[in-house]
Design a protein around this nucleic acid. Structure first.
Length: 355
DNA sequence: AAGGCGGGGCA
DNA sequence: TGCCCAGCCTT
């Protein structure tokens, strides 16, 4: 296996991807790209990267950004805690590191949102330090080459593949080596239908030798989807619509939504009406606008949108003043960061209007 | 050690 | 539909 690094290095120079964050040694840009690319495909993250760097070209501008602006730039990318942690880390860098990104693996890893993978990525790409990256690509490549049955999502697996990756690492050029093994995973050693005929290390691969590529990597945990029923209430008055910001330890933290009631069973229009009457002591008209099933990795959301109308403006004001909701003009809705579930259905939910 | 966190692409 | 993606944080 001694020539593994040479083989993938050679292959990388010929077939590797040209990516904007590879054209620079600026640790800030590399950091941003790595956070965006956590659990995110390169294609999906590309535009976000450009917009983000344009809006926040350096650590200081990111540190002092408004939360809304931040979430707006992240809107649609998912895993929103990444954005909040990113800003938290930027503030740490400004306050404790003189606005300079730390230059050792250990110090980099103490920053919020930076784990073993991202610390190794920044350390190697920006400073050429000898730390092997271990991401989904690396797990797949190494587990196939060695036909290793240890589940990659166990602590034993993490330890095994991390130390293996570091043994194989080309210490003379860690940056290129790390890029090479990840590109090999992304372009050739793909999850389904790997292109083993084009693989520079197929003769070293135990899985290829036995035709068992599909058996690797081995995973232990199963994903189960939790079913939730979200009943969104659409209140509109005088070209204003009621919204609220999501908080707590739940999905979409920091994004906005319409007032919502969650239920264990589907809610009907009548149930919503009763529910509101108990809660507000006021009578309202309720009409169902739209039903949508929305899948997340770990949750199956059944969303129903209801239009709610108070019989009088006075009632609306009295009710509204007892809540912690906000209102926003309909024509300013595009400034508000919403989850994709809401963003994608705005046109169907609202009266014709310029948004 | 386990569970939670988005959204999109692909077979 | 299920799996995967340049993973990490909290409990």
């Amino acid at each position: 296996m001694t020539n593994f690094p040479e083989q993938i290095r050679e292959w990388y120079f010929q077939h590797g991807r040209k990516l904007p964050w590879r054209e620079t040694k600026d640790p800030y840009k590399i950091w941003i790209s790595e956070i965006i690319l956590q659990q995110t495909r390169v294609d999906q993250g590309m535009e976000y990267f450009h917009r983000f760097i344009k809006a926040f070209p350096n650590v200081k501008s990111l540190a002092k950004a408004s939360e809304t602006k931040l979430m707006q730039l992240w809107q649609g990318l998912g895993y929103y805690s990444r954005a909040r942690n990113l800003q938290y880390a930027a503030q740490t860098i400004v306050n404790e590191h003189n606005a300079t990104i730390p230059q050792t693996y250990k110090k980099i890893k103490t920053l919020k949102g930076i784990g073993p993978y991202t610390a190794a990525a920044i350390a190697s790409f920006a400073y050429n330090l000898p730390h092997a990256v271990v991401d989904g690509n690396v797990y797949r490549v190494l587990s196939r080459i060695y036909a290793k049955d240890i589940p990659i999502d166990s602590s034993e697996g993490e330890k095994f593949f991390s130390s293996l990756a570091n043994e194989l690492l080309d210490k003379k050029d860690p940056a290129t080596h790390n890029q090479a093994i990840m590109d090999l995973g992304a372009l050739v050693c793909k999850p389904a239908k790997p292109l083993c005929g084009h693989c520079p290390v197929n003769l070293l691969c135990a899985a290829f030798a036995t035709g068992t590529q599909q058996n690797y990597p081995v995973k232990g945990k199963r994903i189960t989807r939790k079913i939730r029923h979200l009943n969104f209430l659409v209140f509109i008055r005088n070209e204003q619509i009621v919204i609220e910001k999501r908080s707590g330890n739940d999905i979409w933290k920091g994004l906005f939504q319409f007032p919502v009631f969650e239920s264990t069973e589907p809610f009907t229009t009548a149930l919503i009406k009763t529910h509101l009457k108990t809660k507000t002591q006021l009578s309202v008209e309720v009409t169902k606008l739209l039903e949508k099933k929305h899948l997340l990795t770990h949750q199956e959301l059944h969303a129903v949108f209801f239009r709610v109308e108070f019989t009088s403006a006075k009632d609306f004001r009295e009710w509204f003043n007892t809540t912690s909701y906000e209102t926003i003009a309909l024509n300013r809705l595009n400034k508000i960061p919403f989850p994709q579930l809401i963003k994608k259905n705005l046109k169907k939910l609202l009266p014709p209007c310029e948004y």
